[in-house]
Design a protein around this nucleic acid. Structure first.
Lengths: 205, 205
DNA sequence: CAGCCAAGGTTCAATGACCGAACCGACCAG
DNA sequence: CTGGTCGGTTCGGTCATTGAACCTTGGCTG
């Protein structure tokens, strides 16, 4: 990767980790994947990342076992990129990085993360202070905070405004607001239920 | 910074944080600072970073309030770079990043981190499971693990082989202590920097 | 069937970051 | 006066990133 040569000489797990996720955009791609973004185009519009870089990152992350490329539709063959356990394991790192960013450079709360089961806001390590457990990633509920733009330009940001659980696939269908007309509908948008290794189990609480 | 333009459009604390510490080498500089490296030349030989890049990173980190440049000697004017509270606050992030790197890409333990007060190895969030508190950074003791090279080339790596607390300035004085003789200056008891260590917070409920 | 559209890439020139080596200035020791 | 150290800066070459254009597959429309 970009760092390989130099970082490889370091005897340090941090350097090892940075060889894998230390390049530009990489951690933001993983963040988006945690938020439920799965498709090339959604990453593209949400991140504003150059196409070539996105393709390179998705491929590298797949090769490292952080994302998994999965066919979700055959008719026009389409793949989505889903986090593996190895990728999900980066949640605490991203959580603490985001916390640091907010505490030292953020003006207002952008997002709240709560334990979906009890509604309690997460502690600094992603734990639920009330339930006294480290909240599993699929049980983390994300809701917008006061600092978040309520009418973002891109549809992915709009879809992410709704309260949602981490890893829950972002759904672009619900309606087409802010559109004077042109009610275009993606083909085959029906029945996009995740198959196998489902990470989001409905907790009836 | 390198990322500024694009990341700035993101409404996300993680992106904000990455604007500050997301460039190549930056997190490794902070890691070294946590390990006690303070001087330009020590960063240089320990990281193997190009001089120009190191100078740029030190300046940027100082401007962001993560490092503080401090005169430690007048005769030949010499400055050292010391972590501020804002920089020390990155310890949980680096801890979890290192943990992820070790669990998913490391073969053997390179370093142990313990609570210096009781000797217990730290949990995943830097907490001491026995004392049930988040260990303040200056109370974290770092010792080499079995995977670490016992005869590294550069003197900084050699100095870091000794058990030591985080933030304790690395001392290059004991030249080639091949024998059991260890005339170390009393560490830790020295007046420490203006950084106020975090309070001892009990870990989540 | 022609034409258009969308998703998911690839290619390419230009720009910017990074690299390694050389150079520089202050200071001190011999 | 000479050499050595520390903490940089300068500079040419290389590598990564960027933004725009182009391509491919396949469905949908008329």
């Amino acid at each position: 990767m970009a760092l390989g040569k130099d970082y490889a000489t370091q005897e340090c797990s941090i350097a090892r980790a940075l060889e894998v996720v230390g390049e530009r955009w990489t951690l933001l791609v993983i963040r988006d994947a945690l938020y439920g973004v799965r498709r090339y185009n959604d990453f593209l519009v949400h991140l504003g990342i150059p196409r070539a870089v996105l393709a390179a990152r998705l491929q590298a992350l797949t090769a490292e076992g952080i994302l998994e490329k999965r066919r979700y539709q055959e008719s026009p063959p389409r793949d989505e990129y889903v986090l593996t356990d190895r990728g999900i394991a980066l949640w605490p790192t991203l959580r603490s990085l985001g916390l640091w960013g907010r505490e030292h450079f953020g003006e207002s709360r952008l997002r709240y993360f709560r334990h979906a089961v009890c509604g309690t806001e997460l502690g600094p390590y992603g734990e639920c202070p009330v339930c006294a457990l480290v909240v599993p990633v699929p049980d983390v509920e994300m809701t917008p905070g006061p600092g978040l733009d309520l009418d973002p330009a891109d549809p992915v940001s709009r879809a992410l405004l709704a309260p949602r659980r981490l890893l829950e696939p972002v759904d672009m269908d619900p309606q087409k607001p802010a559109g004077p007309d042109a009610p275009r509908k993606s083909p085959g948008a029906e029945a996009r239920e995740p198959v196998g290794a489902d990470a989001h189990k409905p907790v009836g609480a």
